[in-house]
């Protein structure tokens, strides 16, 4: 299987504090890869480096063969990034926002907008100003924006945060469906159940280091655990000891 993303010896320091301490992993094309870890583990920093927002202190990251530093513009053409605490332009309607994004990506086919409307599932509210939306509605709109372009590589930081159970399940199914259609995913989440359900492989990250990489099933077997939460606890405990 082809490698979509290659992260090698990635280090990110802020002044004297190392947020990421030499992590390496690969994401295969067409898989959903999960990055799980507690707050402050270095998940968002890693995602931001891959999304070309931050520059690594050392190490390198390649997305479909393009270097995130030297060829950042090329990388941005391939990725679609959903930050955890993202917002949208409040003075636009949902529809205007989707059309603006389609224009930015140079998409003029109606199918992309249709797909986005399906994912957003906002009904007539799509014509209301985003400023009037609830947190969950904004999240659905942003997910629609991220996936409407059928990106080669989607980076989702806590994709279902702020969504109710029904919508969260629906979105998970959409992500799986998009994976089947060819999009590669990197997901960061606190929700271990979500990760276990969604991800083909996961990396457990703690204090800027990766301790385990593997499929949820393999990891559960290896640590004799019933779920990923247990795996996570055991990995962290062994690290602390």
């Amino acid at each position: 299987m082809k490698i979509a993303v290659e992260v090698k010896d990635l280090v990110k320091k802020y002044k004297n504090f190392a947020a990421v301490r030499g992590i390496s992993f690969e994401i295969r094309e067409g898989e959903i890869f999960g990055l799980i870890g507690p707050n402050g583990a270095g998940k968002t920093t890693t995602l931001r480096i891959i999304a070309t927002l931050l520059k690594p202190t050392s190490g390198n990251v390649k997305v479909f063969g393009y270097d995130v530093i030297k060829e950042s513009e090329k990388v941005r053409e391939l990725i679609s990034y959903l930050p955890e605490e993202a917002g949208a332009y409040k003075d636009m309607t949902g529809m205007e926002y989707l059309k603006f994004m389609a224009e930015v990506y140079g998409i003029d086919d109606q199918d992309a907008i249709k797909r986005a409307l399906e994912i957003a599932d906002l009904g007539p509210d799509i014509y209301s100003k985003i400023g009037t939306y609830s947190k969950g509605m904004v999240r659905k709109l942003l997910l629609a924006r991220t996936l409407m372009t059928r990106p080669k590589f989607a980076i989702l930081d806590e994709p279902t945060s702020g969504l109710d159970v029904i919508n969260a399940v629906r979105i998970r199914n959409i992500i799986k469906n998009e994976r089947d259609l060819g999009t590669t995913f990197l997901i960061s989440s606190h929700n271990m159940l979500e990760v276990a359900y969604l991800c083909d492989r996961v990396a457990i990250i703690h204090k800027g280091r990766i301790f385990e990489i593997g499929s949820p099933e393999d990891l559960m077997k290896k640590y004799d655990a019933n779920n990923l939460e247990e795996v996570f606890q055991k990995v962290v405990r062994s690290f602390e000891e």
């Binding site: 999304a51 513009e73 941005r76 679609s80 930050p83 993202a86 917002g87 930015v104 140079g106 942003l142």
Partner: peptide, 14 residues
């Protein structure tokens, strides 16, 4: 404030 900057900077726009 509206948290749109991060998204804007990852769009395929120079």
């Amino acid at each position: 404030e509206n948290k749109t900057l991060e998204t804007l900077l990852t769009l395929p726009v120079r």
